[in-house]
Design a protein around this nucleic acid. Sequence first.
DNA 1: CTCCAAACTTGGAATGATTCTAAAGTATTT
DNA 2: AAATACTTTAGAATCATTCCAAGTTTGGAG
Lengths: 170, 170
Amino acid sequence: MTGHATTQSQPTTSYEAAAAQREARFLEALQAAGLRLTAQRRAICHYLARTDAHPTAQQIYEALKPQFPSLSLTTVYNTLDVLVRLGLVYALGGAGDRAVHYETNTEPHINLACLVCHRVIDLPMPEVGAWRSRVAEASGFKILGARLVYYGVCPECQRQNPADDNPPSE
Amino acid sequence: MTGHATTQSQPTTSYEAAAAQREARFLEALQAAGLRLTAQRRAICHYLARTDAHPTAQQIYEALKPQFPSLSLTTVYNTLDVLVRLGLVYALGGAGDRAVHYETNTEPHINLACLVCHRVIDLPMPEVGAWRSRVAEASGFKILGARLVYYGVCPECQRQNPADDNPPSE
DNA sequence: CTCCAAACTTGGAATGATTCTAAAGTATTT
DNA sequence: AAATACTTTAGAATCATTCCAAGTTTGGAG
Ligand SMILES: [Mn+2]
Ligand SMILES: [Mn+2]
Ligand SMILES: [Zn+2]
Ligand SMILES: [Zn+2]
């Protein structure tokens, strides 16, 4: 949408277009699953469609609370559960903190979790695309999501703790 | 060891030989890290070197408790932390239960976690071997472990709950 | 061999993310 | 409008994991 394409679609616009599309996919899937599109669910999908930060339930809650004071953390958990069960969002597990980080980027990639600063970044990796179906076929599993994560210490944190050779474990 | 090789090493023997070798690697690494080889750590390494079941801390504790009544769950956690920090064991995260499952198989493979029965099985995948270093190089991360997991429903659990389309999420 | 300090283990208490529950709110259907 | 089916919400309950203080064990110095 908004595809003026004067010379090239502006970064901002193209980003928002992609986000909107992703959000629409979420909402359609919820609807298709027979669920209602409540304001809470919309807000959460809106947020998820626009982050690449692998947030925790708590982070989503805090981000939305100001604009949506009645929102409850339980609803965030419930909605994430639904989205994970529909395979729209992946549950990645902890990153040094004890909270589950969620992932909305279903493009083939590997995640890198820093056990020190608890950030998770993406590393594109097209080869990964082939695995899912291969794994499903080879195992007979009904696959709902993936957790493709390498964990360790990011470059920044390595610089800040050159001596410390003992970061937390999970 | 025990390499009689009458005609071929017996399955049992070869399995035990591999396990013993893996255990030795654990113990050597602990020692190399300047840590003491206590009876508790030995017991835990012995157990880990011989399972392919991706156990939780609690499961390890319960398995060892009868033979080692004084063992404490805290020690199991502490030892797992050490092993994870040394990169000898990987922390895989939950499998439908809320507990972290640990992994001792450092051969390149993908894990499949069943969200219903909470079992995790291995799927060999040699290609995976190349990533770790590739990922490290591309990102600058110091990598300590991996969590290469697809989660869903195993064939057995699919059979038992044919109708149920809604397994738990994490 | 004896003694000391450092390294370890242990049981119990504390933490805190996630789950559960019951009550109240909202949409949908009759 | 009333009944019904879904949802949200606040607060309590869980329970895996972490923290802590105290008691043990270990390796080495003397
Ligand atoms: Mn990602
Ligand atoms: Mn495995
Ligand atoms: Zn970091
Ligand atoms: Zn199963």
